[in-house]
């Protein structure tokens, strides 16, 4: 138990010291937020709503990024450097180790949400009701599960170069086509149609609905759960195949 708590703490410290996390998950979303709400903000009539909407876009963008990239790359690094093997001769179990990673990642997501929400509050005086802040934060935290599963899936790749290339590309494509960078309405119809089925759009849309006083659509929840199951099944299938190969 002591080991598990310590492991959770160390996982959090590790992520915080990772420059990619600080850059991609904290700095970039805030910079984008300033650019698209303070500098190019003429296109939209309803400023207040746009500012809250885009704050949600950037928070989901951030959390999605650390879930896919930090976790996936880290897992591959640990395996290629023999670290995962080494952990297996210590008394801490593989599942406890994995659990600690998930807890660490979740705490980091909470931190990202608080930092970016606070930044939004200061930069644009985004005003939501306390319930809306709470619900949107909770949504972002819980609905990030499929992306953690995607990170774990990417974590089964053999080489660090491959995983960082693939996860970067998938991350940016998902963010762009899911309407996180710019509203889906200004995108071509074909992208809009595809987006309905992407995890990123469904992730973002839940939060966008909450700040408009609605709740996430049922379809958002269903699509995300679907992806969660697919990613989990795929990664456990691949893991089993890799273990059998030894």
């Amino acid at each position: 138990m002591k080991g598990l708590l310590m492991q959770c703490r160390m996982e959090i410290i590790k992520i915080l010291r990772n420059p990619y996390y600080v850059f991609w998950s904290l700095l970039m979303p805030i910079v984008f937020y300033v650019i698209f709400t303070r500098i190019f903000n003429n296109a939209f009539d309803n400023d207040q709503e746009w500012q809250a909407h885009y704050l949600m876009s950037m928070t989901t963008f951030s959390v999605m990024g650390s879930a896919i990239m930090t976790l996936g790359i880290r897992l591959v690094e640990e395996r290629t450097q023999g670290w995962s093997l080494f952990m297996r001769i210590t008394p801490i179990s593989t599942s406890a180790y994995f659990f600690a990673k998930m807890v660490g990642q979740t705490v980091i997501h909470i931190l990202s949400i608080i930092v970016i929400f606070t930044a939004g509050g200061f930069i644009n005086r985004v005003t939501l009701s306390p319930l809306e802040w709470l619900l949107s934060g909770l949504w972002i935290l819980l609905a990030s599960a499929p992306f953690l599963a995607l990170g774990v899936l990417f974590g089964t790749m053999k080489r660090v170069d491959t995983v960082s290339g693939v996860s970067n590309l998938v991350y940016l494509l998902l963010a762009l086509s899911g309407g996180m960078w710019m509203p889906l309405e200004i995108m071509p119809t074909i992208v809009q149609k595809i987006a309905q089925w992407l995890p990123s759009y469904n992730f973002g849309n839940g939060a966008w609905q909450i700040v408009r006083g609605n709740g996430p659509d049922v379809s958002n929840v269903l699509v995300l759960i679907g992806y969660l199951i697919i990613f989990m099944v795929l990664s456990s299938y691949i893991r089993r195949k890799q273990e059998a190969a030894v």
Binding site: M10, I13, K14, R17, N18, E77, E78, Q81, G82, W83, L85, F86
Partner: peptide, 9 residues
């Protein structure tokens, strides 16, 4: 052999 500590800890 071939275990290296890569941590930022």
């Amino acid at each position: 052999q071939e275990v290296s500590v890569i941590d930022t800890l």
